[in-house]
Amino acid sequence: MNNNFKGKTVIITGASAGVGAAVARTFAHLGANLVLVARGQSALDKITDELKPITSVINIAMDINDPVANETLLEKAAQQFGSVDVLINNAGFHQRGDVENNQANDLAQMVDVNLRAPIQLACLMLPCLRKEGGGAIVNVGSLAGRTPLQGAATYAATKAGLRAFTYSLADELRDSGIYIGLVSPGPIDTGFIMSEIDQVEDIVFSQPMSSAQQVADAIVSIARGEETEISLPRASGWLTTISYLFPTLRRALRPALYNKGRKAKLQYKRRNSES
């Protein structure tokens, strides 16, 4: 697949709001056919109606935890547009807080949504991409998947697993014309974080906030095969690498990062209350 997405079919999970909606808008303006996936029909209809004047788009309200629904998704996309060229695994779930303060089933659901479902969808997608002679799978990871994060242990584990899967699959498909990669953002200025800001660990806000559009632009770069991973912000990616390699340093820096994040969190809360 070349860098031109005009006429290509792009499946986007978690497409009804936030990063997913920004990705949908970006690919729409690049001329792609869109298959938008999320659980809520009304929110899907809203973004679909917005983009229909720009490009061809269908939506499918479904739960990506349903293996049968995932198989049907690929079939419907191919039937509608004749081919499936790009998969964006964006849907995510985060049950915040320490492990012992959570229900086991909620933690298991995080594994299902953030790791099992993207793996299944990627596996289902590969025959489609082989048939087309190329394409792309882009997974949305997190800085939390690059280094241990207390208060988000299971979430970090799912994103670390998704990152390992992405790099391994990229090696398996090297020179195939199928691009595999992931975007690993820190905090993003969307409802995923901002609507439950009090439950988010202070340390998360120690890193600069990205916009949904910045993440969407990075996803397009990955889909074009320009890089295997993009961390947002880039400097935070370097910081997570250092903290992973040197755990003693990570623990020593943690109080300062919590303090920095706490101050930034208060500023964001003040901004939200004034808007």
Results as ranks from 00 to 15, higher is better:
257 L>I: 06
88 I>D: 07
113 V>H: 04
52 K>S: 15
234 R>E: 13
128 C>A: 10
65 N>F: 02
130 R>H: 11
67 P>T: 11
232 L>R: 05
254 R>S: 11
71 E>P: 01
256 A>S: 15
273 S>C: 03
154 T>W: 01
68 V>Y: 12
195 S>P: 00
208 P>M: 06
183 V>M: 03
106 D>H: 04
87 L>F: 07
72 T>K: 13
200 V>F: 00
192 F>G: 10
233 P>S: 11
150 Q>E: 11
34 L>R: 09
53 P>I: 07
174 R>F: 08
223 A>E: 05
163 R>K: 11
140 V>R: 03
79 Q>H: 12
247 P>H: 10
123 C>G: 07
79 Q>M: 11
14 G>K: 08
64 I>L: 13
174 R>K: 13
52 K>G: 12
192 F>P: 11
231 S>A: 15
111 V>C: 09
166 T>D: 04
41 Q>Y: 12
272 N>K: 13
15 A>V: 09
11 I>L: 11
204 V>G: 02
255 P>L: 12
202 D>L: 00
35 V>W: 02
233 P>Y: 07
110 M>N: 06
156 A>T: 06
83 S>C: 05
36 L>R: 12
87 L>I: 12
26 T>H: 14
6 K>Y: 00
59 N>Q: 12
93 F>I: 00
178 I>R: 04
57 V>L: 14
107 L>K: 01
131 K>Q: 09
85 D>Q: 03
76 K>T: 14
262 R>N: 10
26 T>K: 13
201 E>M: 02
203 I>P: 08
134 G>M: 06
22 A>K: 01
263 K>N: 12
154 T>Q: 08
125 M>G: 05
73 L>G: 15
6 K>G: 03
196 E>I: 03
52 K>I: 14
32 A>F: 01
30 L>E: 14
8 K>L: 14
220 V>T: 03
59 N>K: 11
166 T>N: 04
129 L>C: 03
189 D>K: 13
251 R>H: 10
263 K>M: 12
103 Q>F: 10
166 T>K: 06
33 N>Q: 13
116 R>I: 15
86 V>C: 06
253 L>A: 15
109 Q>F: 01
113 V>I: 15
100 E>Y: 08
271 R>L: 14
36 L>S: 05
218 A>L: 03
260 K>M: 10
122 A>R: 07
179 Y>R: 02
31 G>H: 01
118 P>V: 06
143 L>C: 13
113 V>S: 02
155 Y>S: 10
10 V>A: 13
206 S>A: 15
97 G>E: 00
204 V>I: 13
227 E>W: 00
272 N>R: 10
82 G>V: 03
35 V>M: 12
188 I>Y: 06
206 S>N: 04
148 P>K: 09
13 T>C: 06
152 A>R: 03
